[in-house]
């Protein structure tokens, strides 16, 4: 006996569910923005102190495309400012990733490095990166270098800690299996320990890229005369809160994009790992 099932209604219901799931994500931000716009227009606070979302969007638009010079000297300069910040993030983050992974794997793998290197690094770790600003300025002056140095400090330790953890928690039996198949010490490191530690290393990189953005902006507020953080602080002096907010949004967006890119690289590299959430498998 065969039974025929008409799949069309099910498919329609599925499409509706998908639509609803799309809406789900925008309900809370939509309500927040609408409330903010209404509150700003009500006149309880002067518009200079709390610009409406529409005003912020206007400022951001002019900053990016330069259509009516609302943002004065910044008009049309967004790309230049964003690139300045992004390059600092990239420089500091790349250096921190390289050294963090190297040092972390060395400490996790070898007792010698653990004994000689780790105590010093663990003592430096609790010092907040921003407290290095005075030294960074006298060492490197006012330019890219102090910012990259700060980004490096902020990004290095998350990478280091996660790399150490990743190497130390490699399944002991995988190492035994490697030895059984005749791996020498170098192969054990490159063919077994390193790939096994990759998920942990990527977790460190994702934390690090967030810290990198935070520290770029901090550095730009004090020690650099360009970039999104500089625009933010400069606009604050001129009481242009619409530009301050536009800068905050830009930083949030670029930070999100960096994490998104990193996640894409991670998904490709760690294809073998099944991504599951508590509620079920995700994509």
């Amino acid at each position: 006996m065969t039974s025929v099932i008409d799949a069309a209604p099910a498919r329609r219901a599925f499409r509706l569910t998908r639509l609803f799931q799309g809406l789900e994500r925008v309900v809370v931000p939509g309500l927040l923005i609408a409330g903010w716009e209404a509150f700003a227009r009500s006149g309880v606070l002067p518009p200079a102190l709390l610009p409406a979302p529409s005003a912020v969007l206007h400022a951001l638009g002019d900053w990016v495309f330069g259509f009516d010079e609302t943002t004065q000297t910044y008009s049309g300069h967004w790309l230049r400012d964003a690139m300045a910040s992004a390059l600092r993030v990239f420089g500091g983050f790349a250096l921190a990733s390289l050294l963090g992974i190297l040092a972390g794997v060395a400490i996790g793998w070898s007792r010698l490095f653990e004994k000689t290197l780790e105590p010093t690094l663990q003592m430096l770790r609790p010092i907040p990166p921003v407290s290095w600003i005075p030294l960074a300025i006298i060492w490197f002056g006012i330019a890219d270098k102090p910012a990259i140095f700060l980004v490096f400090l902020g990004a290095f330790f998350p990478v280091l800690m996660n790399a150490i953890h990743g190497v130390k928690t490699v399944d002991h039996n995988l190492v035994r299996a490697g030895a059984m198949m005749g791996a020498n010490q170098r192969q054990m490191l490159t063919d077994i320990v390193l790939p096994a530690a990759l998920p942990s290393i990527f977790a460190g990189l994702r934390i690090a890229v967030g810290s990198a953005w935070m520290l770029t902006v901090t550095a730009e507020m004090v020690a650099v005369k360009s970039g999104l953080g500089y625009v933010l602080w400069d606009s604050y002096y001129f009481l242009r809160y619409d530009i301050v907010l536009a800068a905050m949004i830009s930083i949030g967006l670029l930070g999100y994009l960096s994490d998104f890119g990193l996640k894409a690289v991670m998904a490709r590299t760690l294809r073998w790992q099944q991504t599951t959430t508590v509620q079920g498998r995700a994509g």
Binding site: D171, N173, L174, R176, A177, I192, P195, A196, L198, L270, W272, Q273
Partner: peptide, 9 residues
């Protein structure tokens, strides 16, 4: 091994 102990990657 008791567990398969394969390289998961």
């Amino acid at each position: 091994f008791q567990q398969p102990t394969l390289m998961p990657w």
